[in-house]
Structure formats: structure tokens, C-alpha cells
Simulated assay, not measured.
Amino acid sequence: MDWLIFGFPGNEPLAAQLAEQLQIPVGQATIRAFPDGESYVRLLSEVQNKNVLIVLTLDHPNDKFLPLFFFCQTAREAGARKIGLVAPYLAYMRQDKQFNPGEAVTSRQFAKLLSSVVDLIVTIDPHLHRVKGMEEIYSVPVTVLHAAPLLSAWVIENVKNPLLVGPDSESEQWVRQVAQAASAPYLVLEKHRKGDREVEIKVPPAEGWEQHQPILVDDIISTARTMIMATQQLITQGFQPPICLGIHPIFSDNSFEESIAAGAAKIITCDTISHPSNGIKVAPLLEKALVSLLRKA
């Protein structure tokens, strides 16, 4: 079955790179907003009896989901057979429990919504905490890829005498993988969250680690409160200014500038979301998975 790959606005470079490596054509479409904010979608390429692969990272998902929905519905009406979504960052994974009465458990609700639109999903390191596997909430196949080998390769190539540091217990799964692959020691700090933008981080004294370069590793950098506080506390306790390494660079508001001001030696992220801090490409990871996936489809 023939495949066409479509890059949504802002995702065209990754779509073009994947198309070249996978040797499938790039589909053409017009996706834009009317002056009143409503979406306009037009498929310019023929999709009848073809499989469609959409490249769309889902930061700011409220703005992106309706165009995605309209695109998929139009493609199916035009005769597309199967629709796959390559979403390097997959949104609405963190609210996986009702913490207060009446709260929406948006991870499950968004999963139901997205599963009704596409037939398969490929993503990188979705934020799994209380949900142990994507099959618990998604009814379509989800291929989960892991960026840890990419982070480890970056550490090996760029840092001498590294010490991997996880800012909280949730980060331990990524920190441990990166540290083991890089043959480096690691620490996991204690975090107490007091609100969306207020956290408390406990850091042990730097005794014995003074000659190591700390590298803070986390999956999602959103408000960056955790990263900022951990950076400040590490420096206060006598560690070298840390390098901050992230998978998904959301960096809301002025959090990127605030992270630099907090004393981070540098900030390096994967390009799952386009950002000035991008220094690690995820395309090779996606290419390898998609070659196998598209052959089976």
C-alpha cells in the first residue's frame, strides 16, 4: 500500500527528512486559520486508497487538535485507507488521576478523542506515571520510542566526568537509563511540589562530587520550576553549575530565560518540539521505527 506523508505547519522539516529516509512522497495540503480563528483545511494531494502519515508534535494541543481532526475526516472522506500520526511530543499525559473532586482525567479523555481520529500513533517518551502502558488508555496501537540512547550519546560525546542528576523521583526512569548507557554515576533529588509554579528541592552536599559535571535530566520542561530550583540548590550545595538536558522543551512563558539566569551552564533538548535549546535530533530514532512499522501496515 502506498504511503503519503504530510507535515503540519511547523513540522514540515521533520516530515521532509522522514520522507527522504523512508522514500515516500510528501503530500500537499493547506492548513491555516481564518481571521476569526476557525480552521481551514484542504488536501491538495490525492489520498484515495493510500495510507497517510501525519507529522505533528502536540505541544499547544488545544490549537492543533481541531485542524488534525478536520484533516483526518477529510482524508477518510477522500478514500484514505489508514491514518498514522507521528507526534514526537504527545500532550495530555500528566493529568492521569483525579486529585480533587470533579477534575477531568484528561489523559484518558484525550486518548479516547485521539484514538477516534487516527489508526496508529508513534511518539517519544510520553509521560507515564500512574499509567503503566499506553494500551491502558489508547484503543489504537501506540509505538513508544525512547530518547535515552540519544541523551547518553550526547553526554558521552560532550561531557567529561559526568554526574547524571534526576530532579525528582519521576525522573529516575530516564536518569538511570541515560547514566547506565553513558557509564556514569547518578543521583535522584527529592522534590515537594507546592503548586503549578512552586516546588521545593532537597540536594545533598557536593562532598565527593566536586570534580564531576552535574547534568540535570528530565522528560518535560514546562514551567521549568523544578529545573530552576534544582539548578540553584546544586550550586548552593557546592556543585558545578549543571547542564540541563531535556526531552520535551515546552518552556512556557519566560521559563527558558529564567533557567539560564538561575545558573545553568547550558540547556540542551531534543527537537521533539522546535526550540532554540534543541541540540539532539530525534529523526534517526523515528526513521528506524517507521521503516519497520510501514512495512507491516
Rank of each mutant, 00 (worst) to 15 (best):
M1C: 01
W3T: 04
F6V: 08
P9C: 10
E12N: 07
I24T: 10
P25F: 09
R32F: 05
A33E: 12
F34L: 13
D36A: 10
R42L: 04
Q48E: 15
N49Q: 15
N49E: 14
L53G: 03
V55R: 02
L56S: 09
L56D: 09
H60W: 04
L66Y: 13
C72H: 07
L85W: 07
A87R: 01
L90W: 03
L90D: 00
L90N: 03
R94H: 11
R94C: 05
D96L: 03
T106K: 09
K112R: 15
V117S: 09
I121D: 05
D125P: 11
D125K: 10
H129L: 03
R130V: 03
G133E: 15
E136L: 03
S139E: 11
P141G: 02
V142E: 01
H146M: 04
H146L: 02
A148R: 04
L150N: 06
L151K: 09
V155Y: 11
V159Y: 02
N161T: 12
N161W: 04
V165M: 11
G166P: 10
D168P: 00
R176I: 02
A181K: 13
P185C: 10
L187Q: 15
V188Q: 10
K191L: 07
K194N: 12
V199E: 11
V199L: 10
G208K: 12
E210C: 02
Q211W: 05
H212A: 10
L216Y: 10
D219G: 08
D219R: 05
I221P: 00
A224L: 02
I228Y: 08
T236N: 14
G238M: 11
Q240K: 15
L245A: 10
G246T: 08
S252H: 02
D253P: 01
D253C: 03
E258C: 00
A261G: 07
A261V: 08
I267A: 02
D271A: 01
I273C: 05
H275W: 02
V282I: 15
A283H: 07
A283Q: 09
P284F: 02
A289V: 04
